[in-house]
Design a protein around this nucleic acid. Structure first.
Lengths: 349, 349
DNA sequence: CGTAGTCTTGATAGCGCTAACGTCCCTGTC
DNA sequence: GACAGGGACGTTAGCGCTATCAAGACTACG
């Protein structure tokens, strides 16, 4: 008869597994944590017991024992709801198994006071690491405060590597290059480009990729106008492009929202997409498929990038605890060209 | 000299606070957990110490001590990315403080095998509770399996209360009623309605609210066509409405995606929104503001609803552990009418 | 066959917190 | 003034897991 007066526990514990497998809890722990140095026979016995009892380790106990309470802060800024949800899902998937805790903070504005406030909130919650999705991944203010506070940080979707900060990103330059090449392959020779917001390095990278590809086709002409990643800015930019001196057959917008705007402008002018005008975007957010016609675009593995960010962060946190100096990592993940119905061969001249 | 050979812990613990405040750790615990029966003087001392040391309780230790490891499963189906992200944020905000764990499972299709598989995954992860956002909140299959497995469940955004399941929702009926009344106030007398997917009770509720409001204006006429919540279905439905015998001055779509489609159709036909045609939606998702003109719509407090769902779930889980019989709760949260530029007074007849 | 080395396993002692129970002390009541 | 009743606070004993170390089992080699 147990003398415990505590709440009865109903779930199976490591001790139950150990008892069934005829080994010590410690051995079960080793097997469950995939440590080596356990004889195959015992390992099998433990695994069998685990399966039989449907044992799942108690993450609270684990992180307590490991003395590694990891609270990971995320400063989000609703870049786009679609992006955010995929990003959150990716992070949650990764944290669920590792027993890390997510603390979200919204940063309404993109100005300095708002950023400072957001970071202060996270520091007050004493987070051990921070993930910065775009557009905050580029904020020097945030970076500096976090660095000063000695908090491990990972930036996501920056245009290029940042020597002082780990980041997870796609090769924006190359992706834009490939998309442009595809347009050239389709026969387009007069292509408009709508840039992204100048405060994000990804914008410059995408533009550069576009320019590099265009440089490879001497007979092609281009027109570049400034956009700011918003639907509204896309409207203005598209109007400007279509009113320009160059009769365009294709528009490459630096994100899907602006591409959607370009489609909208085209329709208002009685142009059929893609028969009269090809429109392509970047990011593969939800609008890409909500729209008619669905957008040809570049897909970033957002969810995988989020997971990678958490992974990098946990690694860095562990390294820091061991006293290792922070060593920034630059993880480039693969992108994909997705061809839907908004692109087609260039109309006959 | 401490004889501990463990990892050094750097963060402040409850003992540090207790020592500084000159009380026992237990008293600190009581203060931190806002229990009564602590004399004001001691309470103040503890709070001061907490502030001074910037103490934050270790959630892992807390949930371990309370023996309440709560893993909450969520089956999502990407109803809309905007909805999902807001929903996730709401849940995370609520779980962060309570030390609950979220396990996400995607249910790609809405057919029975997919649903069964998703639930099986959650059960395998031995979750103690499940949150069902729409559209899975209405699945009888899911409900039955979870019930059989004895897992606490909360459904979110069902059209009406479900006697056998706790749910968090808005009053769809009333919201649709109010929106329709607003249209009538604006002078609209020939109003089209696009219904939602028939497999969701919210659809019927919204339609009923519309009908009830229309019944109050004997001089008004309406035309109702079937939609399925998708943008594409909205296109078809809007075409049908505008081709119909009734020259409409307003269209009320059962969600924003379909309203967006209606706007798109109107534009294609050279109708100005809202001068020639008022279009209103429901849900206030991201499209509502991505679009031009931004949509007048009904806002659900998605994030608050998600938080409420977590709260209900934790309460129910605790009740179950105490042996109380599950008692379904129906929590109705307030909605808001949001008037943007897609609605206006009816054109002169 | 002995001995040093390596691999495997278990015993012990917490990680930080709180449930449960005792003890003390303060009221109010007759 | 004695006693019950209850509030305030401390003590003890874990929650389930793993770090650490010591002991046992085995290997290789002289």
């Amino acid at each position: 008869m147990p003398k415990s007066s505590r709440k009865t526990r109903s779930v199976v514990t490591i001790n139950d597994v150990a008892a069934l497998a005829g080994v010590s809890p410690m051995t079960v722990s080793r097997v469950v944590n995939a440590e080596k140095n356990v004889r195959p026979a015992k390992r099998e016995a433990v695994l069998a017991a685990v399966r039989q009892l449907n044992y799942a380790p108690n993450l609270a106990a684990r992180s307590l024992a490991k003395a590694e309470e990891t609270k990971i802060g995320v400063i989000y800024n609703n870049p786009s709801a679609a992006y955010l949800s995929e990003f959150l899902v990716g992070m949650l998937d990764e944290t669920a198994g590792k027993g890390a805790q997510l603390v979200l903070v919204k940063c309404e504005a993109v100005d300095e006071p708002a950023e400072r406030k957001a970071v202060a909130l996270l520091l007050a919650a004493s987070v051990t690491g921070v993930v910065l999705p775009p557009p905050l991944s580029e904020s020097d203010v945030v970076r500096d405060i976090l660095k000063a506070a000695g908090v491990a940080t990972v930036a996501v979707a920056t245009g290029k590597a940042r020597g002082d900060l780990s980041c997870v990103r796609v090769d924006d330059n190359r992706a834009a290059f490939e998309m442009t090449q595809r347009l050239l392959e389709l026969g387009h020779r007069r292509i408009g480009f709508i840039t992204g917001h100048p405060n994000q390095t990804a914008s410059a990278e995408r533009l550069q990729g576009f320019r590099q590809a265009m440089a490879g086709a001497p007979d092609a002409q281009s027109q570049v106008v400034q956009g700011y990643f918003s639907f509204a800015s896309g409207l203005t930019a598209a109007e400007e492009l279509l009113d320009g001196p160059l009769p365009l057959t294709a528009i490459f917008a630096s994100n899907d929202d602006m591409a959607a705007a370009a489609v909208s402008v085209a329709h208002r002018r009685g142009l059929d997409v893609p028969r009269d005008l090809t429109v392509v975007g970047f990011d593969d957010t939800a609008v890409a498929t909500t729209l008619w016609p669905p957008l040809t675009t570049v897909r970033q593995p957002v969810s995988a990038m989020a997971a990678a960010a958490i992974d990098l962060l946990l690694t860095e946190i562990r390294a820091r605890k061991d006293g290792a100096p922070p060593r920034p990592v630059d993880r480039v993940t693969p992108h994909t060209l997705i061809e839907r119905q908004s692109s087609g061969p260039a109309p006959r001249a």
